[in-house]
Simulated assay, not measured.
Amino acid sequence: MIKPLDYFAALVQQEDSIPLFEAAVALAQDVEPQLDLSAVQADVDTLAARLRRRLPADTAQVQKLRMLNHYFYRELGFGSNLNNYYDPENSYLHRVLKTRHGIPISLALIYIEIAQQIGLEVKGISFPGHFLMKMSAPSGEIILDPVNGSSLSREELEERLEPFVEQIRKAGIPLADYLQPAPPRDILVRMLRNLKTLFIERERWQRLLGVQERLLILLPGDLAERRDRGLAYANLDCPKTALQDIEAYLAQRPDAADAEVLRQRLPRLRDANRRLN
């Protein structure tokens, strides 16, 4: 039987053909290795088919969007998990499908999957602070909040960027660039980094290790992610693999801001590795 990480690596191998929904569902196999990905796909297919049967063949795109919003948010009850927003389960699509509660990015991926199955081309936007969606219509692009399906004006979007204004000023990036569709790889990375933050805060090192393995499948040349995998190994008392990752990071980034702190950890890791050998 193929291992979950190997299957994930196969899914994301080709940049132009990543099956985003399946790959996003597969993230939960770190928690539930036996999770049946095809059963989760069947669940969302059933939801999409129920809506599709209601749509006359000549339904206009904007009317489809209105019907999808009513169906998704009113009938099915999808929305933000306000009572437990920082629960890692909000990032696992099979759980969000069951509870109907999640965070913007997980809600968006389920919404987008249903939208595509009824003939709507909705894309994800990796907007700062809050994942968004957009759809092209005859009247122009419609920017949507995945939490409730509301369309956002330019003024509302600029207001949402205000907390990041200093970062934006330094980067010199216009608003339009923040509204470009996010590639599947970038969306998966964002989902994993959300989980990474939660697992570091909770000191759940085994869960963090699973996240780091997937991040390095998506970003094989990212030295910072390799460093962080090494730190996860160190916290799991696996000094040999921790040393391999941390030393590789230091060899290529000897002057990094955290280099001295990491060097101070090396003697302890080497001693632990010798004791194990």
Rank of each mutant, 00 (worst) to 15 (best):
L198A: 12
Q206E: 15
W205L: 11
Q206R: 15
E213D: 13
M191G: 00
I142S: 06
I246N: 00
L195N: 03
R154F: 04
P184W: 00
A137N: 04
R207H: 14
L198W: 06
V165C: 02
A224W: 12
I168N: 00
E201F: 09
A137L: 13
Q180V: 11
D237G: 04
R214T: 05
Y233H: 15
K196A: 04
M135L: 13
K240H: 14
F127G: 01
A224S: 13
P184G: 06
V211T: 05
R214N: 08
P146Q: 07
G172Q: 09
L208T: 08
L216C: 08
D228V: 08
S136K: 12
M191V: 02
E201V: 08
I246T: 04
L144I: 15
V189Q: 07
D186P: 01
E156R: 13
Q244L: 12
E155P: 03
S153I: 06
P184M: 03
P138G: 10
R202A: 15
E225F: 11
F199T: 06
L192H: 02
L179C: 08
S151A: 15
R229E: 10
R226E: 13
E156Q: 15
D222A: 12
P128R: 03
P163N: 08
Y178P: 05
R169E: 13
L216F: 04
L219K: 13
L215P: 00
